[in-house]
Structure formats: structure tokens, C-alpha cells
Design a protein around this nucleic acid. Structure first.
Lengths: 357, 357
DNA sequence: CCACGCGATTACATCGATGTAAATACACTG
DNA sequence: CAGTGTATTTACATCGATGTAATCGCGTGG
């Protein structure tokens, strides 16, 4: 095959241009009457460049509409200015909202986000730790579901990683999340305070997953214990996934039990919204018959009928902290041990547990 | 500064490795006892490589855990294997679901998706057309809100682009979408068949935006016209954005009118779900008091209370068609005029207009 | 007046992969 | 066995940007 780049170079306005129609650093250099390196120096704010030359180069850049070729820079520098965000599923609203915040945070720091879905599969999470074959990325923010602490311990430590969700292996990698135990405890205490005594946990301890479910279940137990209420393991029901339908199914099954549970602590909002739906189909209502609480404070929870009481993690803070931790790692590779950041959360009391809005 | 690459090269198992800890094509070549180019030939399935050499190279790749450096390849080939998907907002469920499908479709074709949010701002949509400065991407799938046909006409045609949503400029760029006029007409006819006569359009003709709203409003009018019902422009209410709260606000205002509208045709599901919420707050119910219809068939619409009648576009088909069109453009740059693909849609009748599920 | 120092600029090599063209190996014909 | 043709393999240049080290120019102190 022919060398496209060489052949397709065409002459425009007396100058040569590459195929893509983009001027190269060399073109700018010629236009400005300096060497390519000097142009590079101007671009990268090297200090020893005279004001005069700097102006000339800036003008040339402007005139030609030059932009650095990232592939070239990356090849030379080993950096791309791109980070990867890997979440289980984008159509889980929490992750979509989180992604939005991460992209905003990254934008602010002048870097681009590559988004990946893992589907919660261990294989794909491991791929994320490797940078997805495409080592096009300087670092990874990963929200794992199936990763084991061992996976983390044996990972290639060359690629900076920040984990979201449950803290996996202490010291294994930087981590950002809320205090899930405390959050679940508060939610449970809220239900207990409202007189609920048969509180079911929907989404507790998902099979084969190392998510936040264990921590939240722990917080639930701790609230019961603190109030000297009995813990009934049968009330902790696992689900296959964190979607509406899983919540609806689990709730429907629970509503058939006698005595009937009087509250659902759902480990995310989708499950909770599904549970609301199941209540509706069973001819029951929240909060009159059953209280429902969720986690994540996705936008839908504010507008459902009834609106949903939920634990609101500080999503902007999670995103911001994660990105900033990651950038630190990228800038200083051999830095000291892993950090563990806890961001705030808040229980939003809404109609599904007797709130007003 | 020192040359990191040169200095940090360390010896492992008797071989040299680059800083990133990754073997290069040269390392594989040495290990296999062939030239770098031969390794490249194996990687790229060049036909004239003997079975024997091929096996040896494969083994070397395996043994060293080699992976191609995309920056190097991109620099040489001018291709990244990455495409950009630019949508207004990820936390609008429709776009999140669409993104999921686009990523799946791209994955299937062995390419990676860079995701961008435009916020619907013209500036950022234009940036998308340019490949976001980062010319890291081979092509762009863009779901525009504010772009004018003129923007399209004057765009740099070097970068392949596929548009989603409303067809902008015929011939300006490839386009994929549903037949919005027909879809809105069907939805309206459904409401008319149920005896509704004062059908309000929530989200009609958003200010300064060139979205699908105009087409859908047109379909609404055409249904009225076909049934010889009068068209009342006051029933078409614009919104600021396509979020729950906008739908809730618009619906609340409409419910105060006398005579009260007896149906809401909402131009997306979020607006519709917000409208359901407003009904609830006004002590009214769907479908008893007011019918509600949405667009997009997001997952939430199947689980809301009541569940939402909505127009379901064939999202997998949209994503698949868009990606495949884009890949075609990328493979054959100078190809003929722009294509215009219409994919299917279907009215999902649910509880909010008297359906059963 | 020259050596010296310092800031500004440039030549050159390099990052990793691959297209081109040339070289080599190999088989087969006459 | 020379000659021709085909199948494999390789040398080399190149994509664009930048680190290193060398060079250039100019002012200053001895």
C-alpha cells in the first residue's frame, strides 16, 4: 500500500499540509522562521524563550490553526492526558450521574475521560486495571463489583488506579467512598424511629460480588443491635442485579410473607423504585403500609410517586476527590501508600418514609 | 530533565524493558529471533508469513505479554480506533441507555468509545464536530441540540460525523433517527382514540434549540388535523430542559388552567415522569383524570407508578446503524453523499393511558 | 581584548509501529 | 545447474513532538 501521508500531502496557500489537513509543528516553525523545538518550547511554556520569538510563534500557531498532535506527544512523553472511568453499567442512574461529575472534574483539570462499562464482570474489571489494552490512558477510576483483594494485590502497579465504592484491600490502591456502614445504620435508625420492626434488606450480600452491600448490611445489623432489636437473616434478600426489576421481584416476594415486612431498606434507588412499583401492584402504599428507603439519591428518587427517602452520597465530592487523587498519582508515580478518602452523605427523608417532599 | 525512557530502562529476566514496564515490538522481535516488521506483520495478519514464523512470534507475544502501543500505531497510521459519542447530558436516561448501546456496538467492531457531554451548548457541539481538539478520534457520533444547518455546512469535512435525532441539513452528514413525525402522530391518535380532546404538548418547540421537538409537534398537529380537531397553540408549552423538574413545573401550570387539559403529550420520558409527579401533587391521577404519554421508553417508564405509555425508539438499531455508518465513512473517506437512516419505533401502551402493565 | 557565563536557539536522536521497497530464500522449469 | 518467479523477511524511513546537549550571540569583568 502507498504511504498515504506522503502522497496526499497537498499544497495550500503555498505551504504543505498533512493528510488530515492539519499543520504540524514543523509547518508552524517554518512560518515563524524558527526551529520546531522552539515552537515546542513556546507551546510548553519553556522559560528561556524571548518575548519576541514567543510572539512570533504564537502568531504562527494562530495563523495556521495549529494544534498539537496528541499521538506524537504521547509517544514522546508517555502521557495522554486521558483518564479512564470504568463503571458497571451506564444505565444505572447512579453511575451515569457519577460519570457526569467525573467528566466535569476531569474537564476542570484539562483532561479527557474515556468511559468503559465492565458489566460488573471480573474479567472486564481486570482489563480496566490494565488500562483496557489501550494504554491510551494515564490512569483509571474504577468502580468494581467483582474484583477480589487478591486481584488488586497482584495488579500491575504501573497504572495509577483509584477505586470507588467499598474499600477493597487496605493499601491496595487509593479509594474514595462514603461511610457505608454509618449510612446504612442511620437509614435503619430512621426506620426504627418510625416504629418499623420488620425491616427487610433488598440487595443484601449479592452472590459472588464484593460490592458495598456487605458494608451496608453491616450498618443495618449494627442499628438493630444498638436498639436491641433481633436480627432475622431471612429478611436479608439478595438480588441478581441492582435494577428496577430485581427490586420489584424481591419486594413482591417479601410482600407475600406472613408476617409482612413493614419496611424495605433497598441498597440502591433502582431497587427501591422497583419495590415501590411492587407495592403499587400489590395494592399497598408507601409509607402507609410499608416504608421504603433507597441509596444513591438519583434524580428519579426526587420525582417518584411517592418520592423516595434515600441516602445521598456527595457525588461531586466523590468525583472530584477521585480525579484529584488520580492526577496526583499520575504526577508522582512512586508516591507513598494508598490513601483512603471518606466523603460525606446525608439521609434525604421524603414521602416514602413519611417525609413531606 | 533526564530522558526517563533511557534511564529507567531496567533489566528483567535478561531483557530490557521500557519505563512503562511494557515490552515493545522490538523486544518481541528479539525474543522470537525475527525483525520488528515481521512481528508487525503477524499482528496485522499480513498473509505472507510462514506458519512457523507466525507461531514463533505468537509465542513471543504471549511470553512477554506484549500489547501494541496505540500511540505509536496512531502516529504511523493516522487512526486511533476510537470514536467519540457526544450527547447533551449523560444523566438524561435516554442518552445513558443510548451510550450503552453505542459502546456495545463499537466494542463488537473492535473500537473504543470516547464519551463527551455537550450540555446542548452550541459551542461544545461545534467542538465535537472538530473532534474536541484532541484529534484522538477517528469519527464522531453526535446528538445535537443547538447546532444549526449552517454549522454543519461549514464544518471541516475531514472528520466523519454521524448525527442522531432530528435530521438537520439534508446531505450535510449521515443521520440516524426514528420517524418523529409519525411517532408523535401515532401517540396523539392513541390519545384521541381514548376520547381525549385537550391534549397539551409538554416540551414543544424549545427556545433556541433545533431538537426533535419541532418534528414531534408537527406530528401532533397532523394527528389533530387528520381527525379534524382544532389546534390550540396555547396547549404547546416549551420547557427549559428535558428534566423531571421541567415536566413537573409545566404540568403543574397546565393543571391550573380552566378548562383543564385532559392529556399530556410529553416529548420525553423525564418530562412525562415529572408530569406524573405533578399530577400526584395536585391530587389527580393518570389515567383517570389525565392521560400521560412520553418519548424514549427509558427503563424508569416501565416501573413508574403508574407505568408510562411511551414511544419506544429502537435504541439498539440506532446505535448499531450509527456506529456502522461511521465506520464506513472512516474506512472510505471520500465516499458519496450523506445517508439518512430511519429506524423503527413502537408505541408502548401502559397504565398512564389505560394500558395494563 | 579575550575568556567566561548565561540566556536563547537549534541539531539530533528518540518514542513505537508500519509502509515501501529491496533483499533473501526457496521452488521449479528447461 | 542457470534462470525465473514467487513467497518471506528485512532495512530503512517516517509519522509528530520533545529531551538532551551542543551551539550561538551578547554582555561583562579581568
Amino acid at each position: 500500500m502507498i504511504d498515504l501521508a506522503a502522497v496526499a500531502r497537498i499544497v495550500v496557500d503555498g505551504r504543505k499540509w498533512s493528510v488530515a489537513g492539519r499543520p504540524r509543528i514543523k509547518d508552524v516553525a517554518e512560518y515563524a522562521g524558527v526551529s520546531p523545538k522552539t515552537v515546542s518550547n513556546v507551546i510548553n511554556d519553556f522559560e528561556h524563550v524571548s518575548e519576541h520569538t514567543r510572539a512570533a510563534v504564537r502568531e504562527a500557531i494562530e495563523a495556521l490553526g495549529y494544534r498539537v498532535n496528541i499521538a506524537g506527544r504521547q509517544l514522546r512523553r508517555g502521557r495522554t492526558g486521558m483518564i479512564t472511568l470504568a463503571v458497571p453499567e451506564l444505565d444505572v442512574a447512579y453511575f451515569a450521574e457519577l460519570a457526569k461529575h467525573v467528566m466535569t472534574a476531569a474537564d476542570r483539570r484539562g483532561c479527557t475521560v474515556l468511559l468503559h462499562q465492565t458489566g460488573g464482570a471480573r474479567e472486564r474489571e481486570l482489563a480496566a486495571l490494565r488500562g483496557f489494552d489501550a494504554q491510551f490512558t494515564d490512569g483509571v477510576v474504577l468502580s468494581p463489583l467483582s474484583l477480589t483483594p487478591r486481584d488488586l494485590a497482584t495488579r500491575d502497579t504501573q497504572l495509577p488506579v483509584v477505586l470507588l465504592g467499598e474499600r477493597q484491600a487496605p493499601g491496595g490502591a487509593d479509594h474514595v467512598g462514603i461511610d457505608n456502614v454509618a449510612a446504612a445504620r442511620e437509614a435503619t435508625e430512621h426506620l426504627l424511629a418510625r416504629g418499623r420492626r420488620r425491616i427487610a434488606v433488598i440487595g443484601g450480600a449479592v452472590r459472588g460480588r464484593q460490592g458495598t452491600d456487605r458494608l451496608r448490611t453491616k450498618g443495618y445489623q449494627s442499628a438493630l443491635q444498638a436498639g436491641r432489636f433481633p436480627f432475622d437473616p431471612d429478611l436479608v434478600v439478595p438480588v441478581d442485579a441492582y435494577h428496577w426489576q430485581d427490586g420489584a421481584r424481591a419486594a413482591a416476594a417479601l410482600l407475600d410473607r406472613r408476617p409482612r415486612p413493614d419496611a424495605f431498606l433497598c441498597l440502591n434507588d433502582h431497587l427501591a423504585l422497583g419495590a415501590l412499583r411492587a407495592l403499587h401492584e400489590a395494592g399497598l402504599r408507601a409509607p402507609e403500609d410499608v416504608d421504603v428507603v433507597g441509596f444513591d439519591d438519583i434524580e428519579a428518587s426526587r420525582f417518584s410517586v411517592p418520592s423516595l427517602t434515600t441516602v445521598a452520597p456527595d457525588k461531586p465530592a466523590i468525583a472530584d476527590t477521585a480525579v484529584s487523587l488520580l492526577m496526583d498519582r499520575i504526577d508522582r508515580p512512586g508516591a507513598d501508600g494508598a490513601a483512603d478518602h471518606v466523603v460525606g452523605h446525608r439521609l434525604m427523608v421524603r414521602e416514602s418514609t413519611g417525609g413531606r417532599s
